[in-house]
Design a protein around this nucleic acid. Structure first.
Lengths: 197, 197
DNA sequence: TAACAAGTAAACCAATTTGTTTACCTTTGC
DNA sequence: GCAAAGGTAAACAAATTGGTTTACTTGTTA
């Protein structure tokens, strides 16, 4: 018990090594196209160890999606500030961060969306992990729009969500970047929404 | 020569059979997860015939993407009317049609986006087919926004494109439908855009 | 009717897949 | 210093993959 604790402090655990290697490969090459052998090589871990931590490839995929979920939560918590910044500022920060993220050459689309396209109707646990992630995303947006004094925060959150997902999807195919400032686009959307009520 | 012509009139050619079966399976189960054996069974065609028409699975995938491209072109041409309808009406028709399409239980996300997530950096011909399709989409939107008397039709087309892609992506994961009328959302977006200039 | 193009069915091939097993090694806490 | 946990490497198994080949059956046309 104490062993693993001290280990986790000093260096990455085998479990983390595996998940991070798998995450990279799944994002880059897709899920079915990435074999377990490649993952274990990339993680510098034996096959035995891999199957010790994860009873099957699909359960590893679930763990990778949960890791993705958790690190997104952490990342967005770090760039937003509910106490000192306004709702609009937080949204702007989120969108501008997303824009640079989507423009990164290492961006291969949202992992959860990609997983859905390969596993919908096939593996219920994987599908659930994807949906949980998207639920969290919309909940995060709603928690911000609720701070605006508006009658329909869910509606506005949905509109912003559509913008984010659209940008992500387009960036995945195009890579050319957007001919517009997406922070400004979010602002426009909020303006128009508030005007209407 | 005349043989194939008369054949094509009376019933679907083998090539079409294969492409349509493959399209269905790729959309539903993904590309890597769908084996050639399954495709040939679904198309009721022998393996020999399949490899007679398509030298490899990946070239079949390209053909399927081109078929998808062509049938989308045909479909959108049928629901829009450049002569008798205004730009706003055409956009509204397009968005409302998209909303019902995305809500269909047989909708598994945009095939081109899904293909990108499995083949980006792997097969250049497939990637090109996906990008061609997305180029066409944005060009279609731009051809409509140009009819509005506005200084930045490309910008508005991009905004509308983001909305469409966002809806598609969300529908793929969620399936619950949207708590908003997307035709109205498109209208809002146009309004706000025109206001600003 | 005879030749030929187009199709089928099934055996076959080599490579790869997920997953298991065996035998050995290395670290670490007591 | 030693036992035990946790690790490695590699062989192995069974199924599946994309793709080829062989032998046989159609249907059309000249």
């Amino acid at each position: 018990m104490s062993t693993t604790v001290t280990k986790n402090i000093t260096k990455k655990s085998k479990r983390e090594q595996i998940i991070e290697a798998a995450f990279k490969l799944f994002a880059e090459n897709g899920f079915f196209a990435t074999g377990v052998d490649l993952i274990m090589r990339e993680a510098a871990v034996s096959k035995r160890t891999l199957y010790n931590y994860f009873p099957s490839k699909n359960e590893l995929i679930v763990a990778v999606l949960q890791h993705y979920h958790a690190s997104c939560q952490q990342h967005f918590a770090s760039i937003m500030d509910f106490e000192n910044k306004s709702a609009r500022e937080n949204i702007r920060a989120l969108f501008e961060d997303a824009q640079t993220w989507f423009g990164n050459p290492n961006f291969y689309g949202c992992l959860a969306v990609n997983a859905m396209s390969e596993f919908s109707g096939k593996d219920q646990a994987i599908v659930k992990a994807c949906q949980d992630f998207k639920q969290w995303e919309i909940a995060l947006l709603t928690s911000i729009t609720k701070q605006l004094d508006d009658q329909y925060p869910d509606l506005l959150a949905c509109k912003l969500f559509i913008l984010l997902e659209g940008m992500s999807s387009i960036a995945q195919v195009n890579k050319a970047g957007f001919p517009l400032n997406v922070g400004a686009l979010a602002d426009e959307t909020i303006d128009r929404h508030l005007q209407k009520h």
